[in-house]
């Protein structure tokens, strides 16, 4: 599986996700600088976490308008798989590759801790190595993860099975108390209708080694390796 990680000014999880990809696939990803205008031929493009462009204007807004993102949008349209994590998810929303927008966390605090996630789709290229309804423990670290979309859009997403991860409690119940940021309907991760673009606020690359305190992120990268090799 050939992969690329797009590095924007103030991306800060690019090395973490590169290590996770190399650990699982055995091959280091291409690190593509934001000022480049085109990506190499790859099977997977990752938009990493961080604070691209200092979160100026809105999280992900500036990154979404770069030349390299125009190429990411083109590749996504041609079927290349794209994974956006945290700030990468925010960038995907700002490009319109995924619907909705992010608001500041409902409690106005930066939230940095492990959360539980319920996996609602295990038939995607990104999640095929998870068990149905699997309960994962993966860290979040963000200030703007309060997912917003209109009721109509949310109903459409639920109807078409595009909600992949939801914040849950340790019993896998989807509760308000288990929601770390106020995201509507506890949405933590979304996939597009075609199934080749996934955005998620939690950081699977921070849960791929026992030294991380958990390895629930590993199956996501193994799913990609399995599907895209």
């Amino acid at each position: 599986m050939r992969s690329a990680v797009v590095v924007f000014p103030a991306s800060n999880c690019d090395q973490d996700v590169a290590r996770a990809l190399e650990k699982v696939t055995g091959t280091a990803p291409h690190m593509v600088w934001h000022a480049d205008s085109a990506l190499p031929e790859v099977d997977l493009i990752v938009l990493p976490g961080g604070f691209s462009y200092g979160d100026y204007l809105r999280c992900g807004a500036m990154a979404a308008k770069t030349a390299i993102m125009a190429d990411v949008v083109r590749r996504a349209g041609a079927g290349t798989h794209v994974l956006g994590i945290c700030n990468g998810f925010q960038i995907l929303l700002e490009t319109g590759l995924l619907p909705g927008a992010m608001l500041p966390n409902a409690n106005v605090h930066f939230v940095c801790r492990d959360v539980h996630l319920k996996t609602e789709r295990t038939d995607t290229v990104f999640t095929r190595h998870y068990e149905n309804d699997a309960l994962l423990r993966i860290p979040v670290a963000h200030h703007e993860g309060n997912y917003f979309a209109s009721d109509q859009v949310l109903d459409d997403l639920e109807g078409s099975g595009q909600i992949v991860f939801r914040y849950a409690d340790e019993n896998a119940d989807i509760t308000e108390d288990a929601n770390p940021n106020g995201a509507r309907r506890n949405i933590a991760g979304l996939i597009n209708g075609r199934g080749n673009v996934l955005g998620m606020m939690p950081h699977p690359e921070r849960a791929v080694d026992d030294a991380h305190g958990g390895i629930d992120g590993l199956p996501l990268f193994r799913s990609l390796l399995d599907a895209l090799s």
């Binding site: 608001l103 500041p104 966390n105 409902a106 409690n107 106005v108 309060n146 917003f148 106020g182």
Partner: peptide
């Protein structure tokens, strides 16, 4: 209709 957590704070 869009929540404004900062406005509320």
């Amino acid at each position: 209709g869009v929540l404004d957590p900062q406005g509320k704070a």
